[in-house]
């Protein structure tokens, strides 16, 4: 009888431990981020299946619009870098070379997201893949630009989105055809980003050369939902190319003149990846279309997000 009771007690303990383990692992074992005092992601915002008007729950919460909100940037040359004679706020790192302030770069046609990637879109990715990310990345409202994402996080999102668009029957035919031709979903290169932001006429800001505080979210101290700040004059109709959050690119930090190559020769230094566009926390100087920022790939900050391109 005693032996039976002992076995029963041991069994009960084992079942209890097992249930606790299941519970913990299902919830995500308490990790370093939580123990560092960072708030866990809000379940409300992390649920991609929640209905967001104007967004496609079946396609990773992409915009319910023509080409899922991707905008075509036509191929051709554009003026890259800054001429201090025209743009008095330009930094030295935006100068093309000792001889020339700006250079001409020919960029083939590509598609770019009209908006920065949103929290809801990242949440769809996290839910589908179990990708581990900073809980703060999912803590903001669903239509806010995603932040607290590292460069590898951004690339992982791009890979997942490409797979989703390739496999989903709901993907628009045009996009499906481009992907079938070998186009990839990825981060924009510096040149792609700058061309999308300033068009072919070398303007200082996406809306023109004049400083306007009502066309971008900068120097406000807080992010805004994507596309909330209207910018009818902005080239290609893209939103938040200036301000809101800095956007990761797939270009390693290199001095100009710009080189499309991914710098496989210089692998021994500290890695820095270019980010563009400035953020809600920056002054006007940092939200110009030619601004170049850079950060280590592991950096996760409230003011760094990304947008994606579909490019050959």
């Amino acid at each position: 009888m005693r032996l039976l009771a002992a076995f029963a007690a041991a069994g009960l303990i084992l079942v209890g431990v097992w249930l606790d383990y299941r519970n913990q692992t299902a919830r995500g074992a308490p990790g370093a981020l939580e123990s560092d005092g960072i708030a866990p992601a809000s379940a409300e915002f992390a649920t991609p299946s929640s209905e967001l008007t104007g967004y496609r729950a079946d396609l990773g919460q992409l915009l319910d619009a023509l080409l899922l909100g991707f905008v075509e940037i036509p191929g051709g040359p554009f003026l890259m870098g800054s001429d201090p004679a025209i743009d008095t706020l330009a930094y030295d790192v935006e100068r093309w070379s000792a001889d020339r302030p700006q250079g001409v770069v020919d960029v083939p046609a590509f598609l770019i997201g009209r908006s920065e990637v949103t929290v809801a879109q990242l949440a769809a990715f996290v839910e589908a893949t179990g990708h581990e990310t900073d809980p703060q990345a999912l803590a903001a409202p669903p239509l806010h630009p995603v932040s607290f994402v590292s460069w590898p996080d951004a690339l992982a999102y791009c890979r997942w989105l490409e797979e989703l668009l390739r496999e989903s029957p709901a993907t628009p035919t045009e996009l499906r055809a481009l992907l079938a031709e070998g186009w990839r979903v990825t981060l924009p290169s510096e040149a792609q980003w700058e061309k999308a932001a300033r068009g072919g006429d070398g303007r200082i800001f996406p809306w023109g050369n004049e400083l306007r505080r009502d066309r971008a979210n900068f120097a406000t101290g807080r992010p805004a939902p994507v596309g909330e700040v209207a910018c009818p004059e902005c080239v290609h109709g893209l939103s938040d190319m200036s301000g809101n959050v800095w956007e990761w690119t797939r270009s390693p930090w290199q001095p100009y003149p710009y080189d499309e190559a991914d710098d496989r020769e210089g692998l021994e230094g500290d890695p820095l990846w270019v980010m563009r566009g400035g953020s809600f926390a920056d002054p006007v100087r940092n939200v110009r279309a030619a601004i170049r920022g850079a950060a280590g790939p592991d950096v996760r900050r409230e003011f760094i997000g990304f947008r994606v391109v579909i490019a050959p």
């Binding site: 590292s150 460069w151 590898p152 690339l155 992982a156 990825t186 797939r250 390693p252 991914d262 710098d263 496989r264 210089g266 692998l267 021994e268 230094g269 500290d270 890695p271 990846w273 280590g296 790939p297 592991d298």
Partner: peptide, 18 residues
């Protein structure tokens, strides 16, 4: 590669990219 890149090893980053 992602882990290498997060550890700031640049070869990991370029490998992650392509």
């Amino acid at each position: 590669f992602a882990r290498a890149c997060e550890a700031q090893f640049q070869a990991g980053c370029v490998n992650l990219l392509d």
